[in-house]
Amino acid sequence: MASFQWVFDNAESISVNKRPIVSQTIARDQRVRSISRGGAVWRFTVKMPTGMRWSDNRGYIEDIDTVNLLKAETVSFPSTGYDWYTGYRGAATSTATMTFKYNAAQAASDTTKFELGNMPGAVGSALFKAGDLIQPGSSKYVYMVRELVTKGSSPTQLVGVHRSILETPSDTAVTMKVGNAVSWSVICVECPTWTIVERDIVAWNGDFLFYEVL
């Protein structure tokens, strides 16, 4: 039973944070210095609603108590109800043919860019928009495209994403999952307890906090 997926599917609200850790100092002359420390890990804060029936959901709740902070699970936003967040926004009629390649030369040049190949459509068409999600091959890592990507006259082009690419550099091009098809491997780092209120109603004593597993 996928308890974490049940939490995501029934959430009242989901907060997403993928910003890197930033170290910032202010000098005596008020000059501000900032440096990124990396760590752009996906973090999800999930608030559950009050009003769910214990009798309908006790199997999921028991599984949450069992998994607790111990195990990682895979979660996704597969339904069309999440198109506002994960839906593909580019103009390609199909994303199935596009390929992802991140080799040693790219890693030495810019760790936040990969080579996009086998691009469909006409020159000038929008293949990705800022905020589109991609996941290469069988990887467990999800990346967000950070700028508009249009098809050029070259057979390949570099695409920037929100963080350093975590895949091992390789000259092999792989296909990608895009939009609603991506999924995250997460572990719960804050797991709220629950209280039964009135008759058969579950109230959660706090929010869930999930971290991407690297």
Results as ranks from 00 to 15, higher is better:
residue 191 C to Y: 00
residue 155 P to Q: 13
residue 20 P to G: 13
residue 212 E to G: 00
residue 64 I to P: 11
residue 94 S to Y: 09
residue 136 P to F: 07
residue 61 I to T: 11
residue 96 A to W: 14
residue 114 F to E: 01
residue 11 A to C: 11
residue 111 T to Y: 00
residue 74 T to C: 01
residue 151 K to R: 11
residue 174 V to E: 01
residue 78 P to N: 01
residue 79 S to Q: 11
residue 47 K to M: 03
residue 61 I to Q: 13
residue 30 Q to W: 10
residue 70 L to K: 12
residue 72 A to Y: 08
residue 26 I to A: 11
residue 157 Q to N: 05
residue 204 W to H: 15
residue 142 V to N: 02
residue 183 S to K: 15
residue 190 E to W: 12
residue 44 F to I: 05
residue 120 P to R: 05
residue 180 N to T: 06
residue 140 K to Q: 15
residue 214 L to S: 05
residue 34 S to G: 02
residue 169 P to H: 05
residue 179 G to A: 08
residue 15 S to D: 11
residue 42 W to L: 06
residue 22 V to G: 00
residue 117 G to N: 05
residue 185 S to E: 07
residue 114 F to T: 01
residue 84 W to N: 07
residue 187 I to E: 04
residue 189 V to T: 08
residue 12 E to A: 13
residue 45 T to I: 10
residue 101 K to W: 03
residue 188 C to D: 14
residue 119 M to Q: 04
residue 90 G to F: 02
residue 60 Y to R: 14
residue 117 G to I: 02
residue 66 T to M: 15
residue 154 S to M: 11
residue 210 F to G: 01
residue 29 D to H: 09
residue 99 T to G: 12
residue 96 A to Y: 12
residue 12 E to T: 09
residue 180 N to H: 05
residue 192 P to E: 05
residue 60 Y to E: 10
residue 59 G to N: 07
residue 165 I to P: 09
residue 196 I to A: 06
residue 44 F to D: 01
residue 159 V to P: 11
residue 74 T to D: 01
residue 209 L to Y: 02
residue 76 S to G: 07
residue 88 Y to E: 02
residue 96 A to Q: 12
residue 87 G to D: 04
residue 163 R to A: 00
residue 143 Y to G: 15
residue 187 I to N: 01
residue 210 F to T: 06
residue 173 A to H: 08
residue 134 I to L: 12
residue 137 G to R: 04
residue 166 L to P: 00
residue 111 T to I: 08
residue 180 N to D: 10
residue 185 S to K: 09
residue 213 V to C: 10
residue 48 M to A: 05
residue 209 L to G: 00
residue 198 E to R: 15
residue 210 F to V: 04
residue 149 V to I: 05
residue 51 G to Y: 01
residue 69 L to V: 10
residue 132 D to R: 04
residue 178 V to F: 06
residue 76 S to C: 09
residue 205 N to G: 08
residue 135 Q to S: 03
residue 145 V to E: 03
residue 118 N to Y: 04
residue 142 V to R: 05
residue 128 F to W: 07
residue 202 V to K: 00
residue 158 L to Y: 01
residue 210 F to N: 06
residue 22 V to H: 02
residue 177 K to W: 10
